[in-house]
Amino acid sequence: MQDLIRRYGVGLTGLMVLLVAFWLLMLVIIPNITLFESSFRPYLPVVEMGGPKDVYSPNNYLKVFDGSVETTILGMTFMVPVHIRTFFLTIWYSVTVTLACFVLAYPVAFYLAKIANPKSVPTLLLLLFVPLWVSEVLRAFAWWIILALKGPLNSLLLSLSLIDKPVRWITDYDAVLIGLVYTYILFMLFPIYNAISSLDTNQIEAAEDLGASRWRIHWRIVLPHSKPGIASGAVMVFMLSAGSLLVPSILGSTTSQWFTQTIQQWMNDALDWNTASAYAFLLLFLCTAFVSLVMWIFRVKLSDIAK
C-alpha cells in the first residue's frame, strides 16, 4: 500500500482501491449475500413478506428431495428424486466434457509448446482465438444448425459414405456435450500450453537420451510437470460446464435437463426466487466440494493452480 502511494500518488491509489472495493462489494459480495439470505426464506405473496410466516428455514434446500422418478443405473432400478437425478447427470456429463477437453487439448498444447516452429505459434494461437470473436449464443446456434438431422455434418458424412443414413445428433445429452466441449476447450488448452511451455526441453531430451519411449516421456516427464496446468484447466472447464445455461438450453433435447435449467425454471417459470437461490447455492457448494475432492485425490494444491 505504502509502495502504491509512493508510486502513483494518493489520488490514483485511492481511485484504484475504490474501484476494486466497489467491484468486490457491489458486484460480488452483496449480491451473493442477498441471494444467500433469500434462499432461507419462504416464497410468499408480497403482503405476507415480513409477516409471521416469513421465517428462516432450510425448506427451500430440502425441495431437491421432492418428486422421485425411476432411474436405471448399471441394470439396477432406483427411485431417485428428479432434481437430484438432474444434479448427478449434470456433474457426470461435466466430468465427461472435462475429460474430452483434456484428451483433445493436451496433444495440441504439446504441439504448440514444443514441436511447432516458435515463429508460427502466434499465428496458430490467433487462429484458436478467432471463434471467440463471435458471441457464445451465435456459436451455439451454429452448432445447432451443423448438427441438425438434415444439416451440413450429416450431408458431409453421407457424401463421404462414412454413414449410410443421417445420424440424429441432437438427442439426449449428445449435442450438449459437443457444444460444451467446443465452447470451453480453450480454457483447458491455454493452462496446459503454459505449463508445457515452462518445461525445459532438455528434460525431454534427457529422458529420450536415457532410452525412454515417447509414451514414457509423456507419462513420467511432461504430464507430471504440467499437472498444475491440467488441474486449473480441468477446474475451469468443469465449473463452466456445470454452470452453463446457454449451451444446454440451445443444444438440449427433450430428454436432457441441466441443473442450471432447473434453477432457471424455478426463477422464471415458477417465479420462486427463493428456491432458485437455494438451488444455485446447492450447485455452487456441491461443485466446489466435488472439485476439492478430486484435487485431494490427485494431490493438487490450490497454490499450484493459482500459479
Binding site: 532438455n202 531430451e205 534427457a206 529420450e208 537420451d209 519411449s213
Partner: peptide, 21 residues
C-alpha cells in the same frame, strides 16, 4: 538412429535432472 537407440549418454549443460523425482 534416435537418441534412445544409441549407446551414448549426454550430460546437459544445465544437467536437466528431473525435479519431480
Amino acid at each position: 538412429q534416435r537418441p534412445n537407440q544409441r549407446p551414448t549418454a549426454l550430460i546437459f549443460q544445465n544437467l536437466a535432472l528431473f525435479p519431480l523425482m
